[in-house]
Design a binder for these strands. Structure first.
Length: 184
DNA sequence: CACCCGATTATCT
DNA sequence: GATAATCGGGTGT
């Protein structure tokens, strides 16, 4: 499995959001490997009222302004973590791609233990669920996913661009007119 | 299957 | 004090 160079993430956020579909998110902790195919993403950039970075730099969202190819993990609704990959072209000040869903490939047993009482189909079928299944927390913010480590992304399956569907993003109150949620 | 709501807390007004 | 890039359980059709 091949890692993607940092330059791959230094391209327009909306384009990378689509190309992340089919890639593999790999979590390695305590010698156990958890893997899933990325099947749903959403793009967020600074020039977009729905983006956490829209109102400027703050303690919570600083990672969105940081180096591309790193993670941005935030905590929301008092109980959920969500993970983004920082991605943007050089002329854009901040931006990232929210990973909304995975298809579990490897390490189903541990994912199930991280989410007791749930069937395989419900392990990673939402942004808050997949972080729980992969045991991703605040501590996993600002990790470089272009290098093998506790958390990284490698090439996965080929996705036919014709199979990619663009729809409005979920759960936001502004910026609903943009079709920046991608599934295949 | 559609809608409604409570849980729980960081962040902002 | 209100809101939030959510989830899961409940109720009603």
């Amino acid at each position: 499995m091949k890692l993607l160079p940092q330059s791959w993430y230094a391209r327009p956020t909306v384009q990378v959001a689509q190309e992340l579909l089919g890639k593999l998110l790999v979590r390695e902790v305590n010698g156990v490997r958890l893997t899933g195919i990325i099947i749903e993403t959403e793009a967020y950039i600074a020039d977009d009222p729905a983006c956490h970075a829209f109102k400027g730099k703050a303690a919570r969202n600083q990672a969105l302004f940081g180096p591309v190819g790193h993670t941005y993990v935030y905590f929301t609704y008092g109980m959920h973590f969500c993970i983004n990959i920082v991605t943007r072209e050089p002329s854009v000040i901040a931006g990232g791609v929210l990973i909304r869903a995975l298809k579990p490939i490897e390490g189903l047993e541990l994912m199930g233990r991280n989410r007791p009482g749930h069937s395989d189909a419900n392990l990673t079928s939402g942004p808050g669920k997949l972080t729980q299944a992969l045991d991703i927390t605040r501590a996993d913010g600002s990790i470089d996913v272009t290098k093998k480590g506790e958390l990284y992304i490698v090439e996965g399956i080929e996705v036919n661009p014709a199979d990619i569907r663009a729809t409005p993003r979920i759960g936001i109150s502004t910026g609903k007119d943009k079709l920046w949620r991608f599934t295949f």
